[in-house]
Design a protein around this nucleic acid. Structure first.
Lengths: 224, 224
DNA sequence: CGCTACTTTGATCATACTCAAGCCGAGTGG
DNA sequence: CCACTCGGCTTGAGTATGATCAAAGTAGCG
C-alpha cells in the first residue's frame, strides 16, 4: 500500500497560515522545486501518474473532476500553504489547474513515503492534512446535497471573507469556477449575487471580481 | 496537533475486505471493545468528544450532518471492515448511527496516537484509510453537485451491487437514507426506481428492500 | 386483524436550468 | 483616440427537473 497525494484541499474557510500542514517537516530535505503556472494551466490531469505532490506558494489552484459529457465539479480551491495532490493510488483522481497565475512547490511522492516512515511527526502531519481535506469535503457535501442556491452562495462568500479577514473580497476565480464549485450554473450564481445586492446584503463594484459584504448577519442567517 | 477520527467512510463501491484499513496493525494491542447497536441507535453525535474510533464488524453505520432546520446529508455508509470516527480535532464533526442492527469495535483514540507514533506501518495505514475516505467523498461531491436523479440512483445501485458481487441487492437502508445520501427526496428516489423498473432496467420484488439489476449496461450508461 | 411505519403514486408548484440576447471592460489595431 | 472585438458577466423568457403537499397502498408485527 502506498501513501501518496490528492487532497480535496481547502475550503476558503480557514486562514491558510493556521493550517496544520502549513509546513510539513522534512520538506526542505525532500528537495521541493518551485513551478509556476499561468491562468488555466494544468498542474496535472486526472489519471496522470501521481509522482509529485504540491504546496501552493502563491495564487490559487483548483482540483476538479469532469464527467464524460463535460460537466465539472470543483472539489476545492487551494491557496497559499495548502497541500494538494496526495494520492492513495498510483494516479491522480482529480485534475489540478491554476485559477490565475500560481506558484507551487513540487515534492517527490517517494520522498514523502520514505520520510514519513522514519519521521513520525511528518507522518502525523500528513494524516492531519488529509483529515483537514476530508473535513472540508464533508462540509461541501452537505452544501451540494442540501443547500439552496442562495445558501450556497452565502456560505461561499462567508468562507472567502473568513480567509482574508476582510469584508471586501477579491475573488481570484471566475463565475464559472464558482458555479462548478457550488454545483450551480453561472446564470444562477450571477442572479443570486444580483439579488443579494438588491437586498443590500452585498455590494458589487464595477470590477466584478470584487464583492463587499454589507450585512454579514444576513449572510449567516442564509448559511443555515 | 492531534490525530483523531471521523472518516467520511465508504462508498458502497468497493468490497470491504480489500480495503487497506481492513486491519489496522496494533488494534489488538489497542484493546478494542465490541459494542452493539439497534436500528437508528446513535454511536456518537456531532460535537461529542471524539475519544474513540470504530471499526464495523457487522451491519451498516451511517455518518451524517444535519442543518439547523433538520435537512440531513449522509456522508457515507460504513460496512464490515470500514473504519469511521477518526477526527482531526477534539470532537466528532458528523454523527454516526446504526442503519439496522450493527456491531462495531471501539478503539481508544489515544492508543491510536501513541501507537502511530511508534509504528510507522500503522501510521501509514491511518493515512491510507483517510485517503480512501477522501476519494469516496470526492466521488460523492460530483454526484451531489452534477448528476441528475436518475444518474444518482444508477450510480448508487451499481456501487451497492459491486459491494456484494451480485445483481440482487439486499438494501440495508430505507428510502429515506438513500434520499439523504443522494441529495434527493424519498419521493424522487421512489419514482426513479419505479421508472427504472418500467424501463426493465431493474426489478422491484414485493420485499421493497431487495432490488434486482436486470440491465447493468443501461445503468452504466446512466452512470455518466 | 388492525395498527404503524414505510413506500408508492398523484397533482401541483418552485427552484434552478436552458437558451438567447445584451452589457461592460479590457485589449487591439486602425 | 476611437472603433472593434472578445471574454466574462448579467438579464430575460420559457422550461424542466425535482420538491412539496396529499392520499392511498403494502408489509410487518403486535
Amino acid at each position: 500500500m502506498q501513501i501518496a497525494i490528492s487532497t480535496a484541499g481547502l475550503h476558503p474557510a480557514m486562514p491558510a497560515m493556521t493550517e496544520p500542514h502549513a509546513t510539513l517537516r522534512g520538506e526542505a530535505r525532500a528537495m521541493g522545486s518551485a513551478r509556476s503556472y499561468g491562468k488555466d494551466e494544468e498542474v496535472y490531469g486526472e489519471g496522470d501518474k501521481a509522482s509529485w505532490y504540491f504546496k501552493v506558494v502563491s495564487g490559487v489552484v483548483r482540483t476538479c473532476k469532469i464527467l464524460s459529457d463535460g460537466r465539472r465539479q470543483i472539489d476545492a480551491f487551494h491557496v497559499a500553504g495548502d497541500i494538494f495532490g496526495i494520492e492513495r493510488g498510483e494516479t491522480y483522481r482529480c485534475s489540478a489547474e491554476a485559477v490565475g497565475e500560481a506558484t507551487v512547490i513540487a515534492y517527490r511522492r517517494c520522498s514523502l513515503e520514505v520520510l514519513a516512515a522514519s519521521d513520525s511527526v511528518l507522518a502525523r502531519q500528513v494524516v492531519a492534512t488529509t483529515l483537514l481535506s476530508l473535513e472540508r469535503a464533508q462540509d461541501h457535501m452537505i452544501l451540494l446535497g442540501r443547500k439552496s442556491a442562495a445558501e450556497k452562495v452565502a456560505t461561499f462568500l462567508l468562507a472567502m471573507a473568513e480567509r482574508v479577514h476582510e469584508d471586501a473580497i477579491e475573488l481570484p476565480m471566475s463565475r464559472s469556477d464558482i458555479a462548478d464549485y457550488l454545483g450551480l450554473t453561472i446564470e444562477t450564481v450571477s442572479r443570486t449575487l444580483t439579488q443579494l445586492e438588491r437586498d443590500a446584503v452585498i455590494a458589487l463594484p464595477m470590477a466584478r471580481r470584487t464583492i463587499v459584504l454589507r450585512n454579514k448577519s444576513a449572510l449567516r442567517r442564509l448559511n443555515a
